[in-house]
Amino acid sequence: MEMTIMGKYQTLVIRPDSELDQHAAEKIRVGADKLLRKTGLKNVAFDMRRVRFMDSSGIGVIMGRYRTVCAIGGNVAVFGMSPYVERLISMSGIREIVIIAERLQDALEEVAGIC
């Protein structure tokens, strides 16, 4: 998992590895919340381009970050999903609360509200 701070967009970009299960989700949760607290960033963008496998733990970790940043007026975006990941996301209903984008740039502009 990699995390990148995009200061211009007040956004933390989280890039999970290929298998997003409970084991990986727990590491993302701990790492991301620590960084969000430390930096005061408002938004989160999930870069799903590497994700080949995901289960409901992946949905849980996205929902959880939404709760964290929603409280401080931030947004969550998800981009670069495979059709399979997109199917799981659609089943969960989180499309209603997070921004779905195709590319990094679209995701960044949308979470930061500059489009």
Binding site: D55, S57, I59, G60, V61, G64, L88, S92
Partner: peptide, 21 residues
Amino acid sequence: PLYTGKPEDERSGMGFTIMET
């Protein structure tokens, strides 16, 4: 769907729904 016994652990409550689907 969406029921979770552990909301504090960020469980989405989707586990059984996914298995069924």
